[in-house]
Design a protein around this nucleic acid. Sequence first.
DNA 1: AAAACTTGATTAAAAATTTTAGTAAAGTTT
DNA 2: AAACTTTACTAAAATTTTTAATCAAGTTTT
Lengths: 416, 416
Amino acid sequence: MSLLEDLLREVGSAKTTIKRKSALNKVKLMMTLFDKEMLTLGELVQDVGLSFPTMNNLILDLHKRKLLIPKEKGESIGGRKPVLYQLNDGVFNVLCVEVERFSVRMEVMDNNNNVLFPRKSYPFEISTDEKDIDDLILVIQQYYIDMQVDEQEISAIGLSMPGLINYKQGTNQTFYSNNAFNISAYLKQKLDKHVAVINDVKGAALSELAYGAAQNKENVLVILMDWGIGLGVIIDGKVYMGNEGFAGEMGHMVFVDEGELCYCGKRGCLETIASGIFLVNQARHDIENGVPTLLKNLPNLADLQPQHIIEVANQGDQYAIDLIANLGNNLGKAISLLIQILNPESVVLSGKFAKAGSLITIPIQQSLNKYTMNAIRQKCEIHVSTLGENGYAQGLVRYTVVDYFKSNLDALITNN
Amino acid sequence: MSLLEDLLREVGSAKTTIKRKSALNKVKLMMTLFDKEMLTLGELVQDVGLSFPTMNNLILDLHKRKLLIPKEKGESIGGRKPVLYQLNDGVFNVLCVEVERFSVRMEVMDNNNNVLFPRKSYPFEISTDEKDIDDLILVIQQYYIDMQVDEQEISAIGLSMPGLINYKQGTNQTFYSNNAFNISAYLKQKLDKHVAVINDVKGAALSELAYGAAQNKENVLVILMDWGIGLGVIIDGKVYMGNEGFAGEMGHMVFVDEGELCYCGKRGCLETIASGIFLVNQARHDIENGVPTLLKNLPNLADLQPQHIIEVANQGDQYAIDLIANLGNNLGKAISLLIQILNPESVVLSGKFAKAGSLITIPIQQSLNKYTMNAIRQKCEIHVSTLGENGYAQGLVRYTVVDYFKSNLDALITNN
DNA sequence: AAAACTTGATTAAAAATTTTAGTAAAGTTT
DNA sequence: AAACTTTACTAAAATTTTTAATCAAGTTTT
């Protein structure tokens, strides 16, 4: 039984209001420390809203239980250096499961983003049939075996996946979606762990907010440019979910009147003219018609992927550069609509196409200049994501921990 | 000197931390009461976060000072009825100044929305030159004279006006905008009152949120259909401002590629094909070309206004009905983009064109059906605003009071 | 290098608040 | 009319917050 669970049980089993309050304050302290990573006693007093002596006692108790530790000293501002407190390593271990269309990536990280079991990818096909969810369970169990994971060490599972995820109900209305099937509840029952489910793009936005280009910002648009086009909306320093959790469906904004049929059923969605899918289709078609481009040298045209286009563009291939510029122009036009509505302080460009650097950012910026009002655009900075390989898993850890605390506290409070 | 100012001064002049805390809690109590209008002792204990005895003492003190009063008793839920507390009438009196393009409307209301001095409209031309702001001061002074207002009774001024209002700086980048002129500071200096400035559409959204169709909702789009098209975005139960305060500039989303030139400098803005301005221009042009419509009977075609079109449409004029349907279709298309991005629980249609009822709502709904994803639209309700004549002034009162408290407390806290 | 000045940590007594408990008041339901 | 609920109010006990004082550990000035 984990140290953290003991603490949560203390809230539930407290006999007097006062013990209960104290236990709740300890939880609050833990959550604050997780959120801010490292804080001094004084900062904790401010953030949690307690006095120095009380806070000191709570810290002493949590230190004794090995839930937190005094870490290296902070910077002096003209006097004695303050002690920085931090959550202990391994207090909360998350199995990160990142589902993509044709693969699933897993790794285990703790609350301090230490990698306990390294990342491994498995081939996996996402499905619309709820019955296929058992395939995911099999892959997870395979990972446990491959890495010799002791399941007891896992505190919770964080699952990121594409689709319209109803965050209030735990359902995904795109995949595994028959009969309002609650993915989170089903996995929890089968795997005996708390399971937090989040849409992949919102997870990415959370990562940018916590560790990336959106750090310490209030209102940001995170654009994910990949096979599809995703949008994470950050408002008031939080990832905005929308009423059901469907906010940010930018790829299916209708963009072309009576345009191409989209797989979503509508016509002229942004993704039908500005996305990795579109570019690959367009390139295949053009290559077949003999357009001169380095892409012709690919061994297998059927296997053409966005990164191939980006690679040759970065090598100077004019055709690919034009393709990407066109993508940028159209995306810029769409982003300009968003900027008009949301007046963000920053736009973060991420996903594979962000790797094209100025080949895509300049066309985007050009469209923004053309299609947004001066005053609204002027102070809006455009950034390219700098997150590394496991950046998105870190965001998933954050979501999972917060979700775990929230659902546990809700349960404890409504039960009493 | 007002009763409320005494209370605020108490915060500033408190000698011990404890007195200061108590004074701050009294202010918090007042703000909570203003926000929720009527609360029981128990509710106040919950909302403000104090114990029964302490809260009781605060209430006793504020009652003695005539800042609040026990009002009628609440409903019984099986036992003794609780006393409902409310702010006293006249604790905070706001001069509401609603600036429109060719007129300004004024009235004085107190914290409980009692009208102290009735509404009066004055002809007034909004200007882009900061020097013309003195004209506004003259009109305000004229209102004071006309209504025999004792200036001492006015606690603050709430000013609503169109334009890009930078809420952090108090500037309007559209009107009175030379040299980053701070309207709020200038008026405060000249009129010796706190002045809160808010964009007219955001004021309308606030009214819908507090008293209208968006009550108790979290995520709502308020569409204002008038000469122009405005959008107020409500997120997490608050009117979303954007980074500078420019959120919601829906009318200038570029909607038609290489379309008509808009007065904002860009081409093809939504307002150039879907707005009161467009409809009036279109109607004038068509009437001159002999289109059959009841609008021909108007005495003066140059004076054609949106309400004329709505009137004859409601009388069954086919031409006007088509005009409005076209407006609805285009607006619906634009709204569908917003819904895709923000997944709101509700859309509130307001402004003069909302008076056209189903003549405009049906075309809007039709476009929404066509252009938004099923899952996102399904639970999104479309409502028509039901706010009466002084509904928007009430929202302005709310904004003004909150702004007054916030700026006063900020000043007190940074000064100590 | 020492002295003076800052800031942080820790402790203890005084003041205030929150719990807790008990009683009375004012309703509703049986 | 009796039994039960909820609210209001009061007072003692428990706890926390203030306040103040002392020591520790830095930085800056002399």
